[in-house]
């Protein structure tokens, strides 16, 4: 019996141990390596940086680490403006997403109950089709001779094609389009939970609908607004594909910078330093997001 319970305990402990170990090896360790490499110097070699581990010389290991890469980042205007521009683009996109997403989520939550699962499925469906393809689709629409300009000129709304592709506007359109489900779903979840009688009670107590929207609906949707905004803001800051395909050469974004440091300049330590910088920018929103989600799960269970 004792033996059986021992094997049972071992089997049982495998359940957390396996994924734990996997994430430790393939997530935590790689991350520490990035940190280490961001602190070492580039070398013309394969791989193009000074060795990561040299156990024979611990003191030397630490003495080799320096903040040269970060000094480069701080010293170079390019990185500063890429960082600021990433944050600006992500912020504007998030605001646009809220403006577009809220009416949609609100209408979904007000729809007859039997239609709601279908509407949710329709919001999720595009997310399942390739991100790359969905961004690619916009090239054909936004080009100077593209479908949008063709349509607008046919309607007589414009006489000359609008230049949208390869501008920041195309990036906003791309981000709003690609991330809309991430904004709509948390908003919908919050709005759907809202008790209709609360709005009736507000009406009954003398508050007209437009005022109740700000005093009742928005405060109660706040968890959804925060979750949706962070869920869009965080990946938008690090976005690479959208600025690369839709933005112009002057659209600076930090994810794009990391990519070109890595693939074009082959400066791996600098690329790692950019990654760390990106992460530092995102730590605060990520922690807030985790906090909001944890609280949501707590209240639900």
């Amino acid at each position: 019996m004792a033996e059986r319970s021992l094997t049972r305990k071992l089997t049982a402990s495998l359940v957390p141990a396996l994924p734990y170990l996997w994430l430790g090896v393939f997530f935590l360790v790689p991350f520490l390596i990035v940190l280490k490499i961001s602190l070492s110097d580039p070398a013309v070699a394969q791989p193009p940086y000074k060795p990561v581990f040299d156990w024979s010389d611990i003191a030397g290991f630490f003495s080799q680490l320096d903040l040269d890469n970060f000094e480069t980042l701080v010293g170079d205007d390019l990185y500063l403006s890429a960082t600021l521009s990433s944050i600006r683009i992500a912020t504007i996109s998030t605001i646009l997403l809220l403006l577009v997403g809220f009416p949609v989520a609100y209408a979904m939550a007000r729809a007859p109950e039997r239609h709601r699962p279908l509407l949710v499925a329709l919001v999720i469906l595009p997310f399942w089709t390739s991100f790359l393809i969905r961004i690619y689709a916009w090239i054909a629409i936004l080009k100077p001779e593209g479908l949008l300009n063709q349509g607008l000129m046919a309607l007589g709304a414009i006489s000359e094609p609008l230049t949208i592709l390869n501008t920041e506007w195309a990036v906003y359109i791309g981000i709003v389009y690609a991330y809309l489900p991430f904004m709509v779903l948390p908003l919908y979840a919050a709005l759907e939970k809202m008790d209709d009688t609360l709005l009736e009670a507000a009406l009954d107590l003398g508050s007209p609908p437009w005022r109740s929207f700000w005093t009742i609906t928005v405060p109660l949707a706040m968890p959804g607004i925060i979750a949706g905004s962070l869920l869009c803001f965080i990946p938008a800051v690090g976005e690479f594909v959208i600025p690369d395909l839709l933005g112009g050469s002057e659209t600076l974004m930090i994810g794009r910078q990391l990519w070109s440091e890595f693939f074009s300049n082959r400066d791996w330590p600098l690329a790692s330093a950019v990654a760390i910088l990106l992460l530092i920018i995102l730590v605060v929103p990520i922690v807030i997001y985790r906090d909001v989600e944890a609280r949501r799960l707590e209240t639900e269970s």
């Binding site: 790689p30 991350f31 390596i33 990035v34 869920l231 965080i234 990946p235 800051v237 690090g238 976005e239 690479f240 994810g255 990391l258 990519w259 890595f262 690329a271 790692s272 990654a275 990106l278 992460l279 995102l282 990520i286 997001y289």
Partner: peptide, 10 residues
């Protein structure tokens, strides 16, 4: 939530 570029690079 981690940007893909970071996960890929690491």
């Amino acid at each position: 939530v981690m940007p893909e570029v970071i996960t890929g690079l690491s």
